[in-house]
Design a protein around this nucleic acid. Structure first.
Lengths: 157, 157
DNA sequence: CGCAAATGGTTTGTATGCTTAATAACTGTA
DNA sequence: TACAGTTATTAAGCATACAAACCATTTGCG
């Protein structure tokens, strides 16, 4: 195991990010599993409870940062479970407004609660300045991301 | 967009982690797409180039931190593309040793190069102490993860 | 006005992951 | 040796994401 553990310590920053992010989400998933919310279905519900209405599907696409087809299919599932409903947008006949049902509102509160509980549990013992230091690094990485978004790998040419 | 941007700023730490991790991987993916490596198929190749042989599938499972069936299927793909091959393990007839083909070796070098390039680009302008501060936070979050891995959401009971 | 381009949504096909269950081989103990 | 439990791999089925292609509507420009 020592070989593996050595390796773990030297994981790249990117790897650590992905690892931790996945583990974090898994915690929330586990807590929400008992509410019948599998995997990532809780995210649309959460954001529908946070975004100021009216919420179009496109707004969800931007908030959830997943593609439109993924949102459409998730909403199909949530609609079938009577957590959300779609209504026509009188402003724009192409778009649909998405809202939480009453059951969805209750679920959204539970989701918010679970998300906050996991967050405060996992951040236990970490000071605000430390968190801010992390955020500062994150922001600079994001800035670097936008910098030259598509450099081909072989710049030795 | 201002509403959305406000929201962005207040994203929970977990959300930030997932976002950044995904964006980071997307950078690598983009750079490696031209080598025909889609999505996460480059990871087994990378690790096969890093782990000391002999490498069994189980070793890859631990290194990649994905489940055994996922590894098996990825290896099927990579084997079909002539990047890796499986051979019987004389030590243990249950297991199979996985190795890079010559083409696989070349690809592994390209992957390593791309991964390192993305890493150094994205970490540009971030000092070592800052990185270490992040790692320190990450490690404490990981410790909290292990703490009580499955607390039900409703602890108000 | 009228047509091209952009935008919102859905459908389809593919990729990747997990869980559960099956199969084969190893390990340890009586 | 024999049998129970563990471990390595594979198989099958489900969930979730993306990209490409499609339709309907809106927008913008001549």
């Amino acid at each position: 195991m020592s070989d593996l553990e050595r390796n773990e310590k030297e994981l790249s920053f990117g790897r650590r990010l992905a690892r931790l992010g996945a583990a974090w989400r898994r915690q929330v998933d586990r807590d929400l599993h008992e509410y019948g919310l599998t995997e990532a279905t809780w995210r649309p519900v959460l954001y529908l409870g946070l975004l100021p209405p009216p919420v179009r599907q496109t707004d969800l696409v931007r908030a959830l940062e997943i593609e439109a087809p993924s949102v459409a299919r998730l909403l199909d599932v949530l609609e079938r479970r009577d957590l959300v409903f779609r209504s026509p947008d009188s402003e724009d006949k192409r778009s649909k407004l998405v809202s939480l049902t009453e059951k969805g509102e209750r679920t959204a509160r539970q989701v918010r609660h679970a998300v906050e509980a996991v967050s405060s549990r996992l951040l236990q013992g970490i000071s605000t300045p430390e968190l801010q230091a992390c955020y500062s690094v994150f922001e600079r990485i994001e800035a670097n991301l936008c910098q030259r978004a598509s450099t081909p790998a072989g710049e030795q040419a």
